[in-house]
Amino acid sequence: MKNKIEDLRNHLFAALEGLADEEKPMDIERARAISEVAQTIINSAKVEVDFIKEVGRGSSKFLEVEADAAPETRRRLT
Rank of each mutant, 00 (worst) to 15 (best):
M1V: 07
N3M: 15
K4V: 09
K4M: 11
E6L: 09
E6K: 15
D7I: 01
N10H: 14
F13Q: 10
A14I: 07
E17N: 07
G18V: 05
G18D: 03
L19M: 11
D21Y: 06
D21H: 06
D21N: 14
E23T: 09
E23P: 00
K24V: 15
K24D: 13
M26N: 04
D27P: 04
A31M: 03
A31E: 02
A31S: 12
R32K: 13
T40E: 14
I42F: 09
I42R: 13
A45S: 15
A45D: 10
A45Y: 12
V47M: 11
V47I: 15
E48I: 01
V49C: 05
D50E: 10
F51V: 09
K53C: 10
G56D: 12
G56I: 03
G56L: 08
G58S: 01
G58Y: 01
S60H: 09
L63Q: 03
L63C: 11
E64N: 02
E66N: 14
E66V: 06
E66Q: 11
A67R: 12
D68R: 01
A69F: 03
A70F: 04
E72F: 02
T73G: 00
R75E: 15
R75A: 14
L77N: 01
L77Y: 08
T78E: 11
T78A: 04
